[in-house]
Structure formats: C-alpha cells, structure tokens
Design a protein around this nucleic acid. Structure first.
Length: 292
DNA sequence: ATCCAGGTATGCA
DNA sequence: TGCATACCTGGA
C-alpha cells in the first residue's frame, strides 16, 4: 500500500471566519465534509471529487486534492463553491434595507454562500434528511457511500449513482440507518432507472416545473424539492421551509401559527427572487441562537 | 429511560 | 382543504 499523495496547496479567492466556513461546509447544505483532526482543515467529497480545505489565521482558504485527480478537482471546486466574487451582488439585492432582522443575519454571517452540488446526489442526501439531525444524515450518507458507492481514490468513495441504488434492495438500504427513508430511496431509484433522462430534464426545467416534477418522487415533498433545487441546482428562488424557518418566521416576523405552505408564499413575496439565499442566512442565524 | 429529530404520505372529518 | 398520525432508529 502506498500513501496518498496530495497536491500542493493552492489559494482560493475565499476568505471566511472559521465558524462561517463551518456553517458553509457542515451547516446542512452538504453532508460529506469533516474536520481533519481538530484544527482548521476540512476534507470533503462530492461527485467524483475529494478535496481538502485549509484555513489560515487570517481566514484565507487554500485547497489541495489527491495528486492524480487534482486538475479535475480544481476546476470542479470552482463550481462547487460558487463564483469567486461570492454572492455579494445577490446579497445586496435582498431587502435588508427594509428588514432589520435580515440585515442582522447578513451581518453575522458575512460571506456565507450557497453551494452548487451535483443534482442527483443532492436529491439522495435530502431524501435521507426527513426528521433527522445533520449528524445522523451524515452517518447515513457515509454508509451509503461506503457500501454502495465506487471508490474515487483509496479510502474515499463517491455516493452511489441512482442506477447503482436501483440494483440494491430496500433491505440493504435499511441497514444503512435509513429507516423508513429506505423505501423512498429505493422506489425513487427504481423510477429513475426506468426514466434515465428524467433527472437531467428536471434539472434543466424552469423552477416551478422542476419543483413539481421533483414532488412526484416518493419521499420528496415541498421542502426536500426546494433544498435539492437550491443546493443542487443553484436555484436561488427556492425557499425551503423547515422547522427552523418556521420558527424564525414565527419569532422574528410574527407569523404565528402559519403553515409551511403559507410561509413559502410569504418568503417568495417578501424576500423576492433570491429568497433561497435569504433563507440560508436566516437558517444559520436561528440555529446559532438555539445553540447559545 | 424516553423523547425527539432540517418531512412525507395517508387516512379521515 | 385541513389536521392528526404513522413511519425507523440513533443520539441527547
């Protein structure tokens, strides 16, 4: 066995505080980033990519990847992390001038962005997410990769493709800690195996049509569909409403007793076509308050 | 021990 | 259309 060779560290035009980097990588958008040791280094897997991020004291972030795939990872990382300039123009277009709470959230998490993850695996991850905490979702996803995904480089597996999942069984999936989600994932896999272009078509469809299509899949409701479109297709108009956003809307916006569907309407009307970006800041803020 | 977790589908008024 | 309940199971 030979030790894995990593490429030299290269700079990213990304600079964040450590806690905002954590919020970005491990705050519920993605589920395959972990700290290396106990310090300022992270290792993550997405698609066929493996990368390490390292943060200097001034917040500047560098990346490295296994030498033999470093070129590819380098260019994919640029897509994954979003535009070099970040989301500054989009953030500025949010209604923070007339919304003091939103302004506060933007101020507390400067530089927070929306990841652009592979569509199919974002769907898989959020099918795992129903009534589970991030830690547990990460366990499920890790088991899926270990048991059913192919090796990218020694020690690192990608997630199984939908075709590969269709070749497993509901029972095999249940043993990946999935519980009742196993049936959803298996049935979705069966459907996608019979409709090979479905995901590609859906990803390319206009937002509302894509959302309707996703909601046809077993286990996919409004919330999951919006997460998949926001984190896996860059659709910033998607406004996922989970318990945290419900709580935020109740506590900060006075929408006591509103149901998720009503909050979705409110969000789109109040925050506009980039509502999903606002959602991420509100979400991060509410969770931080809860931990205090 | 017991309770809950970033929902969704289903059954019943 | 609206509301309650079941669904799995590892952690807190």
């Amino acid at each position: 066995m030979c030790a894995l060779k990593w490429s030299d560290w290269k700079p990213l035009s990304l600079k964040l505080t450590p806690d905002i980097l954590q919020e970005l990588l491990d705050g519920g958008q993605s589920f395959r980033w972990n700290r290396v040791g106990n310090d300022s280094e992270w290792i993550g897997i997405w698609g066929n990519c493996v990368a390490k991020l390292s943060q200097a004291d001034n917040g500047a972030i560098r990346w490295s990847a296994p030498a033999q795939i470093a070129d590819r990872v380098g260019s994919e990382l640029g897509i994954y992390l979003g535009p070099n300039a970040g989301f500054a123009p989009q953030v500025d277009a949010l209604p923070w001038r007339s919304d003091a709470h939103l302004a506060k959230c933007l101020e507390v998490f400067p530089g927070l962005r929306i990841l652009r993850q592979p569509f199919g695996e974002t769907l898989l991850c959020f099918l795992c997410s129903a009534t589970k905490q991030i830690v547990q979702i990460k366990q499920m996803v890790a088991l899926l990769a270990t048991r059913h995904g192919r090796e990218i480089i020694p020690g690192f597996n990608r997630l199984p493709t939908w075709a590969e999942l269709a070749d497993t069984s509901e029972l095999a999936l249940r043993s990946c800690l999935l519980g009742f989600r196993a049936r959803y994932i298996y049935e979705t896999a069966t459907f996608l195996a019979e409709n090979p272009n479905w995901l590609t078509t859906t990803e390319a469809a206009p937002y509302s049509e894509a959302k309707e299509l996703l909601c046809l899949l077993p286990g996919v409701g409004e919330k999951v569909a919006d997460c998949v479109l926001l984190f896996g297709a860059g659709r910033l108009e998607a406004f996922p409403v989970d318990v945290w956003i419900l709580k935020t809307m109740e506590r900060r916006y006075g929408l006591v007793g509103w149901k998720p569907a009503q909050v979705v309407q409110f969000g789109r009307a109040h925050f506009g076509p980039l509502a999903g970006l606002a959602q991420q800041y509100l979400f991060a803020y509410e969770r931080r308050e809860a931990r205090r």
